[in-house]
Nucleic acid binder design. Structure first.
Length: 438
DNA sequence: TCTGGGGTCCTAGGACCC
DNA sequence: TCTGGGGTCCTAGGACCC
């Protein structure tokens, strides 16, 4: 035997993708047996269908469908508000079950995880498909929810396999079967291929995953960039993506936004919405011990165009007190009189951990301390009595007035005019972002 | 699909430096 | 100095995900 040719040959690895089916609705059904045979939809608080069970799906409910339409299609529907605490608990318990089998578990989102079970056959006295089946069964018995499981030599393939049968599927995709599966898998259904890439792929004659993986590496490198080159390697059975077990606890950015209906052109109202979002974003940042270096103010117009502006703070902070002057300045730059707005958004960016918060040299230390104490009290009361027990005066209109609609006053749709104040912005050195329709 | 909310990563191009 | 090459950092914007 020529060992030199075998030395670098690696054994196929075994990855699982575990995907809870209709997760939020399933959690509700698991905790409320009386809903068992009824169509369940969650997301009432947002006015759209956030998650729905398979019964509701059979009635034609789709993601993001407005509730009035949901009721029309599905008169006996059970509409529920989202209960993220409940879903979080189910999520934790689901991942804990997977961790009984392997330490290499990556909590990818609230309802999905990846796991690697390479080398676990001996320890568990089971084949890989048997391990996958056991995990699946354990979750169902312990939590009363079903999952779709994919078992494959890479994460991308495991994800594809998990999607093969939904709900309640268990799909083993060994290397030798990759071609057969790929031939029946259109590229637009691949993890990491969206509308744009699918369109591009079609233009160069790639329609199925098989069309993609049968290309030579040189061709792929010539026609694609890193994300899709990596994807190609994974789909041909070569591991690029490892399991990340670290729990996510730091953010690159935190954003808060809210749509208001009907749209408004009232400056004070739109501004108060913005400040409310800022408060929420700051609360989240503080909860995670983050401070922001930059803030992005965004307004979305009635015709779904964004106007946005980014500002650098004078010092990193997670207190509205520090950030409001910048938000106000940005708001004044981008708000245009006579335009109808449907939502505002605040993004805190350039986040860092505030292990040692830098005080501005010119600010008296006493004052900084006071601000910190005030917000510590605010955070405590919010925790105790609910969000917005305490809030800033500037966001008052947003908290109490139900925005009123005057019928027939909405202007005709028109495109957003070019922003004014260009020279001011240039003088202040404030960059401006104008995003197209999304 | 007349459309909610919250994120991440990648890349190109400019600024700046040696 | 009309002139080469290369590195790093930052930002805007695109694309995608759940």
């Amino acid at each position: 035997m020529d060992w030199s040719t075998h030395r670098h040959q690696s054994y196929p690895r075994a990855f699982l993708h575990i995907d809870a089916n209709a997760f939020f609705a399933s959690c509700e059904k698991a905790t409320h047996p009386e809903y068992k045979n009824k169509p369940v939809v969650t997301g009432v608080e947002r006015g759209i269908a956030s998650s729905f069970c398979y019964i509701a799906k059979a009635y034609g409910v789709t993601r993001g469908m407005v509730l009035s339409e949901v009721k029309k299609r599905c008169p006996n529907v059970v509409l529920l508000p989202s209960d993220y605490e409940l879903y979080g608990m189910f999520s934790e318990r689901m991942f804990a079950i997977v961790r009984k089998y392997t330490n290499l578990v990556e909590a990818y989102s609230i309802d999905e995880c990846f796991a690697e079970i390479t080398g676990m056959r001996r320890t568990l006295h089971k084949s890989y498909p048997q391990i996958a089946a056991c995990i699946k069964q354990d979750i169902q018995e312990a939590l009363g929810i079903t999952v779709s499981v994919g078992l494959a030599p890479t994460k991308c393939l495991a994800k594809l396999a998990a999607n093969w049968v939904k709900p309640d599927g268990l799909t083993f995709l060994p290397i030798r079967d990759i071609r057969a599966y790929a031939a029946k898998w259109p590229v637009e259904k691949l993890w990491g291929v969206g509308k744009q890439t699918a369109q591009y792929m079609k233009s160069i004659g790639i329609r199925t995953t098989a069309d993609f993986i049968m290309q030579r590496e040189s061709f792929i490198e010539q026609h694609f960039t890193k994300p899709h080159i990596d994807m190609w390697k994974e789909l041909t059975g070569n591991v690029v993506y490892e399991i990340h077990t670290e729990k996510k606890q730091t953010y690159k950015s935190i954003s808060k936004g809210k749509t208001f209906t009907p749209p408004s052109q009232v400056r004070s109202f739109v501004y108060s919405q913005l400040i409310k979002n800022l408060e929420n974003a700051c609360i989240k940042a503080r909860r995670h011990h983050h401070v922001a270096q930059r803030v992005i103010v965004m307004l979305k117009t009635q015709e779904f165009r964004y106007q946005a502006i980014e500002l650098h703070l004078s010092r990193a902070s997670a207190y509205p007190h520090d950030i409001i002057p910048f938000v106000q300045k940005g708001f004044q730059q981008i708000f245009s009189e006579g335009t109808w707005y449907r939502s505002t958004q605040v993004v805190l960016a350039g986040l860092q951990l505030n292990t040692h918060i830098q005080a501005n040299l010119f600010e008296p230390a006493v004052q900084l301390k006071k601000i910190q104490q005030v917000y510590a009290a605010v955070d405590m009361m919010s925790k105790k009595f609910g969000k917005h027990t305490v809030h800033l005066g500037a966001s008052l209109p947003a908290q109490q007035t139900q925005h009123k609609n005057i019928r027939g006053t909405l202007p005709k749709r028109r495109t957003v005019e070019k922003l004014q104040g260009e020279t001011d912005r240039q003088r202040l050195g404030i960059p401006m972002i104008q995003l197209g329709k999304i």
